[in-house]
Write a protein that binds this DNA or RNA. Structure first.
Lengths: 216, 216
DNA sequence: GCAAATAAATAGGAATCCTATATATATGCG
DNA sequence: CGCATATATATAGGATTCCTATTTATTTGC
């Protein structure tokens, strides 16, 4: 039941809360970017490209960032001027380019981190089990957005062909990663694993069904 | 235990997840703003001013938005040109101004909503009890940021003088709002209540202690 | 009464970000 | 084959955001 005045849905209030957290993350991004000598948007691109040696197309980058394609072109050009990325012509399609991070780009990215971020301060207000729950909820939310085609497939365990959810009886480390051939726990689930390899749609659906139902 | 390769902290991965969600919220904001005939930053300002009849100063607005004061001046001027806000001179301090939303501003704000947002789609991937947990976690995170002076006090129940946490035995509606004199549940906690009145620091601390420990 | 602090505006400039359009290449189909 | 359509990216043009540094007006403190 709602209090009589000012009624809102819980979805609305969650959105308000997320938006406050997003705001401090933007401040974090400015600080990190400043240390790296670039801008927040450019930093996002470098983060996206890190660990993707083969590079990404301009359109893909735009979709990942949630901006228009010309905006992505802009920022890629700015990064190129600074020597942080390089564009290669695609072999198969001569219209396309493949944007990849350079050594200089990786150095800039490294220069960015360090210093306690505000987002970390916020997360530290949560108990360990809450952090774990939050991570799992975020994975569920992100997966929903993927299913709805609102965002591209991320490099999360749940869409990876190496992921075997709840493969072990051990409650602390129920999952198995076939890439490293090791058991791991809920709190170790990856959002952006560079060893990720997207599984086929059918496999993804099956994996998700097991993951979602959990261990019971 | 981490998988051997690519080790990261759970804080880091939560940040990655939040940043993905923040990205789709930015897309939502563009869509809403476009419907309202303004820009995302301007929309944030209107949302901030809604329900604050007395208005806010330029510096306060900048702090709430996490931008510099001249940037806030810029966007306020843009809103003023469109007739969405008006500046009044402060009575007590003739240096200061008080920015308040106008009827036209409220109309624009209303024009913005409608349409299912991507953020809502994401939230709907969660079960009702998960949504409630998420809301409470966000409150804890935001409160931590306030305590650290990273963001201003929000209009959350937990800092409100009308809020009496866990005042009732009823597990479904343990809290009490002295403003409307009614019981309400965890899932009804407000992030941005327009009836909020900030309690004294000592009261806030006591209220928080009760809220945080929960019903046990 | 005057120095220091504060609120907001201004100056100057880079970068983001949009829509609309142009260019080059690929693909599909009769 | 040849042409229409689709796709990948770049360009054009323009509004706005966003920064740092500085200026202006006012208040506060000693």
């Amino acid at each position: 039941m709602e209090t009589p005045k000012n009624p809102t849905s819980i979805q609305h209030r969650i959105r308000e809360g997320l938006s406050r957290v997003a705001m401090v993350m933007r401040v974090d991004d400015w600080n990190r970017a400043k240390r790296a000598g670039i801008n927040p948007t450019q930093l996002s691109i470098l983060e996206l490209l890190e660990g993707r040696g083969d590079g990404l197309g301009v359109k893909e980058i735009a979709f990942h960032l949630g901006v228009s394609q010309p905006t992505a072109t802009d920022s890629i050009a700015a990064l190129e001027r600074k020597g942080c990325v390089e564009k290669r012509q695609t072999e198969t399609d001569r219209r396309g380019v493949s944007v990849a991070i350079t050594t200089a780009g990786l150095t800039a990215l490294r220069a960015g981190d360090g210093e306690e971020s505000l987002a970390n301060q916020a997360t530290e207000a949560l108990a360990a089990h809450e952090q774990e729950d939050l991570l799992v909820m975020l994975i569920k939310m992100i997966r929903q957005l993927q299913v709805n085609d609102a965002i591209p497939i991320q490099r999360m365990c749940t869409s990876c062909r190496f992921f075997a959810p709840f493969a072990h009886a051990d409650a602390a480390q129920p999952h198995h990663c076939k890439f490293v051939d090791a058991a791991f726990g809920q709190r170790d689930l990856r959002i952006d694993c560079r060893d990720h390899e997207t599984a086929d749609a059918a496999i993804r659906a099956a994996t998700w069904a097991v993951f979602e139902n959990g261990r019971d």
